[in-house]
């Protein structure tokens, strides 16, 4: 169990996906606070993917760098894309009806955060949380 791809196409897919992330986090002995941060971040990103990208695929991977073990989550959608990424990363900015905490809030919960988006092609967000990071 080092890699999984899960299609998230409807709201009911979210809870099973979160549970799968938790299984991975427990497997690499991630502490409870970091687990909670990772799963909350995953929940925010998967909601964005559903709301703005009409769903997509989520990849869960166990990765290591030197002595560190962690989890990388990748969220890929084929939605409209994000026109202005720096703006989308600002607290309080939202094109939808949300609080606009999703992307900047998620960024604060994880160790590494990367977002790539192309208009008309889609958006890919990647986050990494180290087990003891």
């Amino acid at each position: 169990m080092t890699r999984d791809t899960i299609m998230v196409l409807k709201e009911q897919d979210v809870v099973p996906f979160r549970n799968r992330v938790k299984e991975y986090a427990v497997k690499i002995k991630m502490g409870l606070v970091n687990q909670t941060k990772l799963i909350t971040a995953a929940s925010e990103l998967v909601r964005n993917m559903l709301r703005y990208g009409n769903g997509g695929e989520a990849i869960i991977e166990v990765i290591s760098k030197g002595p560190y073990t962690g989890i990388r989550l990748t969220f890929k959608d084929e939605g409209p894309g994000i026109a202005d990424i720096p703006k989308a990363m600002q607290d309080g900015f939202s094109t939808g009806k949300s609080l606009g905490l999703g992307l900047p809030g998620t960024n604060r919960l994880v160790n590494e955060f990367d977002i790539k988006s192309e208009l008309g092609i889609g958006t890919t967000v990647t986050i990494i949380k180290w087990a003891n990071g």
């Binding site: 409870l32 606070v33 687990q35 909670t36 941060k37 925010e44 607290d91 905490l101 809030g105 604060r108």
Partner: peptide
């Protein structure tokens, strides 16, 4: 852990 996460999330 939920309290810690909510504050860092900004909520």
């Amino acid at each position: 852990a939920v309290a810690i996460t909510l504050v860092e999330l900004g909520l």
